[in-house]
């Protein structure tokens, strides 16, 4: 079951040194390029691909598994998996 991350919710998280880490996967086929994930990612893990159609992971280490992107993706085209 996708565990609901209640700790870090809508408040922007500080760039994490320690703490939870996340692995981000993007399914470009479903992504419609709305840029929500890129614009709201608290630690700027994502950026739009040069062709502008979908995001790409530009800084995986910075991901804190806050789940903002995958819970706000209108097309379920991005998944974050917490890394223990």
């Amino acid at each position: 079951m996708t565990e609901l991350v209640s700790a870090v919710n809508q408040a922007p998280a500080k760039p994490a040194k320690k703490g939870p880490r996340g692995e981000v996967k993007i399914f470009a086929t479903w992504c419609k390029g709305c840029t929500i994930c890129v614009e709201f990612c608290p630690t700027h893990v994502l950026a739009m691909h040069p062709n502008g159609n979908h995001p790409i992971v530009v800084d995986q280490e910075k991901c804190t598994a806050c789940h903002f992107c995958d819970t706000h993706c209108p097309d379920l085209a991005i998944v974050v998996r917490k890394i223990e």
């Binding site: 609901l4 086929t29 479903w30 419609k32 819970t71 209108p74 379920l76």
Partner: peptide, 21 residues
């Protein structure tokens, strides 16, 4: 067939995710 019918960025898809969770 995916992706969904809604416009790029539409909030309805977000609600669908919530409903499933």
């Amino acid at each position: 067939r995916f992706p969904t019918i809604w416009c790029s960025g539409c909030g309805i898809g977000v609600v669908m995710g919530s409903l499933i969770r």
